[in-house]
């Protein structure tokens, strides 16, 4: 049964439009509304159900976007022999962070590292939208035209769905995903293309570095973007530090995740079920498991001294 078309009372804010398109949300959402972008299909044939997303559908779409983005992020940290490493032009002949599933670790970690309240998250994304309104991405204002006659309608509905989604419990990893992809589109002109849904993952290794340069550090554009656009004073004051802590965490933990044991942890026996890939990559404990209770490296005492002089 067709639902009635909803009518918005105001035109879509250009900044918000850029969030939807530039962050990859539209591309990810299209994947869960398969009728939307099928080549050759007459847009006039679209009905409401084709272009409306439930919160659950949008959540699934955003999680897919996050996974795609984090694969690109982990390949950036520890390249391997995977398609994401090859896409960035820096790959190696042996597995890297993606082989260790550091992406999963990263997503879970980011969601736990800062307890951002929903209202904080919503203000943050609105703030980014407001900033983009003043400092446009290289996305044409008429981007919706690419979607055909119903383009505006698609974006409006997507925006409404995103609004509903943001009212709920939004994981930090989703917010970070949107940021990485937005910045990917902002710093790389014209925006790149490639096999992945996430714009970030289509970048070269050097281009990913430019994204990080825009986010990492105390004078990043993000700081300026947020300071004046978040209405709540306490949130406005806290946002730059929280976001910078998140970015710094992500860059650091992508490495930590690539070399720790989480993917092969045996919780029953508190050991590893097999030798972690990160240990293979680093030459650590070649005979593990099991992990021995000691080593055989004791060589005595420097100059035979067993104690220090007490004046």
């Amino acid at each position: 049964m067709k639902r009635e078309r909803e009518t918005l009372n105001h035109p879509l804010n250009p900044g918000r439009r850029r969030v939807l398109v530039g962050s990859g949300v539209l591309g990810a959402a299209a994947a869960v509304a398969p009728g939307l972008l099928v080549p050759g299909r007459a847009h006039a044939d679209l009905d409401n159900s084709d272009v409306q997303w439930t919160t659950e559908q949008l959540r699934a779409a955003l999680e897919a976007l996050r996974n795609d983005t984090f694969f690109g992020l982990v390949a950036f940290a520890v390249p391997g022999d995977d398609p994401y490493s090859q896409q960035q032009g820096v790959a190696t002949g042996i597995p890297g962070g993606i082989g260790t599933r550091a992406d999963l670790y990263l997503a879970g970690g980011i969601d736990r590292v800062v307890p951002l309240p929903p209202q904080f998250m919503n203000q943050l994304l609105n703030g980014i939208g407001a900033y983009l309104d003043a400092a446009p991405l290289s996305i044409p204002d008429d981007a919706a035209a690419n979607l055909g006659d119903n383009g505006e309608w698609v974006l409006e509905n997507l925006d409404a769905s995103l609004g509903r989604y943001l009212e709920g419990d939004v994981p930090n990893s989703i917010m970070l995903t949107l940021l990485l992809n937005l910045v990917a589109n902002q710093v790389i002109e014209p925006p790149g293309s490639g096999p992945f849904v996430a714009p970030f993952s289509n970048l070269s290794w050097e281009q990913k570095g430019r994204v990080m340069a825009a986010l990492d550090g105390e004078n990043s554009w993000l700081r300026n973007a947020l300071r004046w656009t978040i209405p709540d004073a306490a949130f406005r004051d806290a946002a730059p530090g929280v976001l910078q802590a998140l970015i710094s965490f992500v860059i650091r933990i992508a490495s930590f995740a690539s070399y720790n044991e989480f993917a092969v942890f045996d919780p029953e026996n508190l050991t590893v079920a097999e030798r972690p890939l990160g240990w293979v990559l680093s030459g650590y404990e070649p005979d593990a498991p099991p992990i021995p209770d000691g080593g055989n490296d004791f060589m005595g005492y420097y100059q035979g001294r067993r104690s220090a002089d007490n004046a």
Partner: peptide
């Protein structure tokens, strides 16, 4: 251990 080594090698205030 390896992950702490990697973690410590990836932390800086002065970029990548």
């Amino acid at each position: 251990m390896p992950a702490i080594h990697a973690n410590n090698l990836s932390d800086s205030n002065t970029g990548i």
